[in-house]
Design a protein around this nucleic acid. Structure first.
Lengths: 201, 201, 201, 201
DNA sequence: AATGAATGAGTTTTCATTCAT
DNA sequence: GATGAATGAAAACTCATTCAT
């Protein structure tokens, strides 16, 4: 997708194209059949490469999964941070963030489903899938709380609850087929604002 | 010629003791290592019985898991329904229900963790783990909405969001070691009331 | 079927009735699913008795099979001998024997099929299923040969060929559903007479 | 975490050497102990390869058996057809065919025994081991009958009987150690001709 | 760098047999 | 004598990972 060297033979593919092919194949397969039910051989076949080549990019099947999950998490965290950093009232920023989350979700449907399916994978730093998203939520909550825009509460627990809301909304939205016309973001934003914001905010 | 078993068959003590031993061993192991990473052999060893005996009680490894999950779900649903049926304002009933949930959680710690880890198992009726709890939440939400105690919203999506909140709070609470002294229920109730109740309620 | 003590409670069953029940259940099941695919538990259930009871009558699953096979073989051998002992020309006796074989077959359909399916079981005396039938054929052939009614030939080989003819005809007949109206016996007798008898006979 | 293989992968010598090794090991073991009493592990050990390698060539234990049986059947059918297609009287052609059968048998001793032991395996097309051979016999019989060289009879039943004769002779011959000096073919041909040919032929 | 054949430990599940009741 | 719960060895099959080509 990036630099396709049209003057070269097909054999010399962009190394990134293979990495991408692995990701895409794995995302689809993991999502459809579950991590444990997908073999590296199947991923390789689906990606159009050899088994050994998968191992050039990922030391382990688990490593591959983790890389994928970290990828989606990054996308969400990045978007949340940037949406939150915009101008506006807290209510506006929350709303914007909710819409942002679903936009990222739309771009990463397979991986999102995978992220929600995968709760028993531990990363090397001891964290779990979703933790980085939850951390980001906690940062935002703490900031809001400190300026009196949020009710007082334990930031960790509050972030956990908020994160659960997001997950719940997204899982529901995905089970409906992730339709564009249903405004899951709006409903999420509503509960979010009422549940966490003070009247002052 | 094939199997000459040097069996030392054990006595049949309590008829239910084995069933219980299986449940407890499986709950601990599934929870600690994940469903896919626990073999029936491991469960049997942990339960102090033979592999074949596990199969006397559960046709399949998956069957065993389902039975366990349905058990916890039932406990939650039953308790929610009974707490909700009590007298009091909606706010009071919500609060009572939140405390009730954590009481049930305390009694089913291993299984609760299992329930939250297990999101990609499909039951024979097509439902997923947690669905029955979410259904119960939807029932309550709809009732409240119909009398004007809740904001208007799609009951399915609202129930999904509420369910996510509960899960988020419980997972957090469990990661803290499920301490009795931290009032996760209170914080959950707070967000619950603010997030869903109208001022009128 | 023999002595049903009508004055006693049902519990005191004729010990032979159990033996019979086992035979019948095993015959049907072995025939339908193959020896290896039928468990003693299934036989016991089908026979309406306990697993342990099967073992009161037969030391081993293999022992049970052997007893059954010997049973059918005996039936065939006995009938062949008696039919052969009757008066008449050799041709008549052959014909009578062929009809006799199919009469026995009709009475032992399940076991017959089992006998034909089972070629790799070795009896304790080193013989194989069918051997006793083949022996009987050899006796008859030798007798006929000695009086000049049969072509000269190695009795063992001739008996093996004749036995194969019988088996072939019966297997075919069974695959047609063992119909009464198709005269397999007649066709068998025809080839038998032409193939083995001299013109003199 | 799961499989750390201390693998010493071997070189890929002859591409077909493994396939052949599997066939030979399986033929010997199936023949000696019966299909059901031979595990894939045993075959692999005997063939000097790993279990998984067996599965690279055959999807299933049953598939392996079928491939082997079809191999022998083909050999027999092909030879019968070619022998039958030669010039000569029917008697000569029958005789030639009988000798041909035993030549093929000599080249496929293990598999032949397997073919005769295996009567309860059903192929995907519903046919049974031996059916193709019997079909070929029926074709020949029908042809002979149509020109008046054979007695009249139901071709299916006649083919079954003839097929049984062949099997009987071969089994006997194998139990004698498949000796070259005993003329099983001649005896078979004799009964064959007398049993099926008309005087006119 | 890429390939994919080979490996073998590990999984789920079955079942002949035993023996305490 | 009858029962059937309990046993655990064994089987078919899978698949992450390696490494010679």
């Amino acid at each position: 997708m990036k630099n396709q060297n049209l003057t070269r033979a097909k054999r010399t593919r962009d190394p990134d194209s293979k990495r991408t092919a692995i990701y895409e194949a794995a995302a689809r397969l993991f999502t459809d059949h579950g991590y444990e039910n997908v073999s590296i051989a199947k991923i390789a076949r689906e990606a159009g490469i050899a088994v050994g080549t998968v191992y050039r990019f990922h030391d382990t099947k688990l490593t591959l999964l983790r890389a994928m999950l970290e990828g989606v998490e990054d996308a969400f965290v990045t978007r949340m941070a940037s949406d939150w950093a915009c101008d506006g009232t807290y209510a506006e920023r929350i709303e914007r963030m909710c819409y942002g989350l679903f936009e990222v979700a739309e771009d990463n449907l397979d991986l999102l489903k995978l992220l929600n399916m995968t709760t028993d994978i531990v990363f090397t730093d001891g964290s779990l899938p979703g933790d980085r998203i939850q951390n980001q939520i906690r940062i935002m909550y703490t900031e809001a709380m400190n300026v009196g825009a949020s009710h007082q509460g334990d930031p960790h627990m509050m972030a956990a609850i908020a994160h659960g809301m997001v997950e719940g909304a997204m899982v529901r939205w995905m089970r409906l087929g992730a339709p564009k016309d249903i405004d899951a973001a709006a409903q999420l934003a509503l509960v979010f604002k009422d549940g966490f914001m003070t009247n002052a905010a």
